[in-house]
Design a protein around this nucleic acid. Structure first.
Lengths: 232, 232
DNA sequence: CGCATACTTGAAATAAGTCAAGAAAAGTGG
DNA sequence: CCACTTTTCTTGACTTATTTCAAGTATGCG
């Protein structure tokens, strides 16, 4: 990996405070690769030989059972994913597929575990990151168990509006069918739910959503820090 | 905490390989407490001042939103819980309540973080444990999104039979209503689903389940390592 | 024994999924 | 750039799954 490439990930919170030498050790056998859209990076059940870091593009993590498929998470840059599998040297619980053209840094899992043992700052950052991931899944699970489809959608839209800077109109980051799968609903059900949100001031033109009356939408969605705040 | 008490948790995987001095440091300000059944140990949103370890009894972790409640996990001894909140020094995402009379060891979160920084073996064990927790929630989330209620119940029963040693008859570890909440269904729906499983050789007398035809049940449940194996 | 609570069952309502078809959008190749 | 293909999105009609409400039964506890 060249220096221009290592720079792209040096700023990541998991590397921020670590020693230069330890970082260099991590990068030694790392490599960068660009993938076209719709490419499977790895599948559920395979050994987790590399910690993946998404530098550019978009990746979906999905899961399968009995012929059914669902999307567990959509990863956006710059962030690492499948950290837990790397740490436990366990098979992937999810498959990963590029949504668009994406650039990834791959760090050998063995190196990650080795450097964890030698660099305290990295160990601290890594366990913090993993704890954050854990809490993310717990929140997503609460979202699924405590809310109906339309409530999940309403909260999703509020979150996306915030991520997009808060303007009334914003563009959805991925296909609707993928958002539907992420929220645990069918595309048809998603489409109908979106139409029902018209009652709450949500308009929808292609991939563009306009929230005319955010207060009304919030009254329905009832977002809470304990589910919807990524900082908590 | 007395020595007889520290012995109860010394064998836990997260403490197994650590230094005696570091373990002593952890136990210095720790204390043991016994709680009656149905006591709330802490609530969602409170600061996580202690890492909790369940030594005896049973504890449920639940979550609330908009007047609804669900059970996220039922903790059985001996295991730690809410590790992620401790590590991030963040508020609890779940509430905890004793199901039966329970004995807990409470380790000050600050001490856990401090010892993490000084004892490499503890750091390693802790990050491994947390990664295991993460994977547990991912599996539970896959279970919820990919399976119907009756499929979740069928897999739950198979798992419980294994935990109970594999005999055809075994006793459910908690009230049915709690299992229902854990599986993301209503008590009524749970009751009906259990009756439907009669078609697959499952009989039900009070809290005792008898699986007459495990093969038939497995054909329905289709358990998979990537969801149902706690070792993976 | 009597009370409170959990469990079960039925009937009805609601939520969500399936199937099918048309409209819109995106991608392909000449 | 345009026809053509493919895929996504939407909508309607219908089926299935799940929840809710209500009542009765069983169970456990003081």
């Amino acid at each position: 990996m060249r220096e221009s490439e290592t720079d792209e990930i040096r700023g990541l919170t998991i590397f921020a405070d670590m020693d230069d030498a330890a970082f260099a050790r991590l990068c030694r056998a790392a490599y960068v690769q660009t993938f076209p859209p719709q490419v499977e990076l790895f599948a559920e059940g395979e050994p987790s030989d590399f910690l993946h870091i998404l530098v550019a593009g978009q990746v979906e993590l999905c899961a399968h059972w009995n012929g059914r498929e669902t999307i567990m998470e959509i990863v956006r840059p710059v962030s690492s994913f499948i950290l837990a599998a790397t740490i436990r040297d366990a098979p992937f619980l999810m498959s990963a597929r590029t949504v668009e053209k994406s650039r990834l840094v791959l760090l050998p899992s063995q190196d990650v575990r080795d450097v964890f043992d030698t660099d305290g700052a990295f160990a601290r950052a890594l366990v913090r990151e993993l704890a954050g991931c854990y809490r993310g899944v717990v929140k997503s699970s609460k979202n699924l168990k405590l809310r109906s489809g339309i409530e999940r959608l309403a909260n999703y839209l509020i979150r996306q509006q915030d991520l997009a800077g808060g303007a009334p109109s914003f563009v959805l980051p991925v296909e609707k069918r993928k958002i539907a799968a992420l929220l645990g609903m069918t595309p048809e059900n998603f489409s109908r739910a979106l139409r029902l949100l018209g009652e709450y001031g949500v308009a929808n033109d292609g991939m563009t959503i306009t929230i005319a009356d955010r207060k009304s939408l919030v009254r329905l969605a009832k977002p809470t820090r304990m589910i919807d705040d990524p900082e908590v």
